[in-house]
Design a protein around this nucleic acid. Structure first.
Lengths: 357, 357
DNA sequence: AAACACCAGTAAATCGATGCACTAATCAAA
DNA sequence: TTTGATTAGTGCATCGATTTACTGGTGTTT
């Protein structure tokens, strides 16, 4: 703590603290250029930096935002966090990081504590169908941007949602597989409780229906017994799913995973089952995390424009915090794109009976 | 901002604000049990929560720490961040996340700003050989824990270093390869400017020397032209390195990568070169990030006990901040362990001439 | 009964920045 | 000269919690 106060600056410059404060806060309208430069040089000479605590106490505001993610151990959230931090920093905002581990109770506690500590805006990465647990705080005045989610009935009015068009994204992936000639596809995810999972599933179904395939063409595996799975376990989930699905009678020739981590698990599981991904069986992911391109085989996936989304998230958060939200309560959907790599190909002639042990 | 103040609580309980404050701060020694419970129930009734800004203004302290990492987009740092946050949260500390992108200037700016904003402790993940850029701030009073680094001459006295024994770790990996029968090994990293890279290289050399191999047995690739590589590029670096090394005359049969991200790149590069990792060529990593175990093939690597290290980092940071540092200026080394998986095996008979196109 | 110790709790100054209400000074119009 | 308007800047209460110095009351000692 430097310890230089506004009073010392005022004394050094031969003015009152108010004048220094006025300068600092841009109220320079009626101020002699000479006074101004005198104060400015005093500030520089003393290396003065306003005390944030005092500022916050006085104004009630603080230049800080909260980011609540399921877990930064997941590279997708890590990447998002990095971009959001960059966007925030550019405007002088710090970012407080909170890992919710997908626990709504933890989300609620964080939101309330952050608000109680003077943080006016939070980016909440939770794709829970309901925001009821944070509604009271939002209604009390907290600025909220819900990320990876679309607006739902009953949401607090002031919240803004940001995500990608999950239905479209998953349709792109599924249509790509259908175009390759697959006719038996599996959809792998954890329990379908979240908004984006539901949407992605819907995209999957839409593509199948549009292709005129029967309902039975789409196998759904959603980890019946893993009620609430963790990000760290997404890969493990995929692995288990793949083993189970591929060893069943009449296995699918393609597997659509809910996200890349899960897809990587599916790839591992398929390998254990003795199949070669990219020829015996096709796999798609979602997110396009850095590792998707480096995996073996490189993963065909749906890319979310993370950097762009982070910038939007921050911009909208500021708007909501400043009250000029304009159009809150909405969903802002970014456009996902399909990235075709090596994990998908036309189905083999006699599926599931090609590889060596 | 809840808006309930200590005065309201005092009024509700029929006591003075001082008494409430005394209770809140554990000065309950001379307080009638009856008064105490009266105050406590008032607090509960009103849902009072102390205003952090006011607390900080008065005491100069704040329950917050800064974490500066190269980039949370790298899962190793993401995992570390998650564990550190958990340790901090358990003691009521928030964690401010800062991405330095390995830029010393950004590290310095962050450190100074955090200190200026009343944050008393920072965990700095930088393996730069020198801490000179943050020395003034540490000497001004900032509590600093340098992570992934060992103490160097000229370090600020109050800093604590936490890391793994890199020399030992890399020796474990190298000895494992030597035991498998490899006699030509390559060491792949970016420029060897950082402390831990130097240490890891030293471990590699030690193992080779101890085995009585000639100097020429160890090929070093350190990206001559990539002066300062980024975490995001670690994988790319590995890929390029592998392509280059493996297409040279008399290629090595094993590649030791500086970390897992780099190793994953090496695996990709080897594949592009037409080699099968785990049989034609062996590859080891370092860190044991979550993905190491899921890669194809699963990566043999050196595990850093991240969770334990995060707990230590936080514990030591508190000590330094409280001034009872005891033994500062030291290095605390955790013990790395070798995790053998599928990316390493005995060298093929005629190396580099086995696989299909 | 005077002197003192002790107890339980209080009054008020304090941290540093802010911004409203105010004033002293200058100038213009009446 | 008086009045009013404008300019340039100041005084000070304020935010909420902390903490030191203090008070009024009770009990004990000599």
């Amino acid at each position: 703590m430097a310890g230089v106060t506004i009073y010392q600056v005022a004394q050094e410059a031969g003015v009152s603290p108010s004048t220094v404060s006025n300068l600092l806060n841009g109220r320079t309208g009626k101020m002699l250029p000479e006074t101004r430069s005198r104060v400015e040089s005093a500030i520089r000479r003393l290396g003065y930096r306003p005390n944030r605590a005092a500022q916050q106490l006085r104004t009630g505001r603080i230049q800080m935002l909260g980011l609540i993610v399921p877990s930064v151990a997941n590279p997708f959230w890590g990447t998002f966090a990095r971009h959001l931090e960059a966007a925030a920093l550019a405007e002088g905002f710090y970012m407080l990081l909170c890992n919710s581990e997908r626990d709504p109770e933890r989300e609620r506690r964080y939101v309330e504590e952050l608000w109680g500590d003077g943080i006016g805006g939070v980016v909440l990465c939770s794709s829970l169908p309901s925001l009821d647990h944070v509604k009271p705080t939002v209604e009390a005045g907290l600025g909220l941007v819900a990320f990876d989610r679309t607006a739902q009935p009953g949401d607090p009015h002031r919240a803004v949602n940001i995500g990608t068009d999950n239905v479209l994204g998953m349709r792109l992936a599924t249509e790509h597989l259908l175009a390759l000639g697959h006719t038996r596809l599996a959809f792998v995810s954890g329990s379908i409780g979240s908004v984006n999972r539901a949407e992605r599933y819907s995209g999957f179904r839409q593509a199948l229906d549009a292709a005129g395939l029967p309902r039975s063409a789409g196998i759904v595996w959603s980890g019946a017994d893993t009620v609430d799975f963790d990000d760290r376990d997404a890969a493990e989930l995929g692995r288990v799913a793949a083993l189970e699905i591929l060893s069943a009678p009449r296995p699918p020739t393609a597997i659509v995973a809910i996200n890349d981590m899960c897809a990587l698990g599916v790839v591992a599981g398929a390998r254990e089952a003795g199949l070669v991904v990219g020829s015996d069986v096709s796999v798609t992911g979602y997110d396009d995390i850095m590792l998707a391109g480096m995996a073996m085989p490189a993963l065909t996936t749906v890319r979310q424009p993370v950097e762009e989304m982070a910038a939007t998230a921050f911009a909208r958060l500021r708007q909501v915090m400043d009250g000029d939200g304009g159009e809150t309560g909405q969903s802002i959907l970014h456009r996902p794109t399909l990235v075709v790599r090596d994990s998908t190909s036309a189905p083999a002639m006699s599926p599931g009976r090609v590889s060596s042990p």
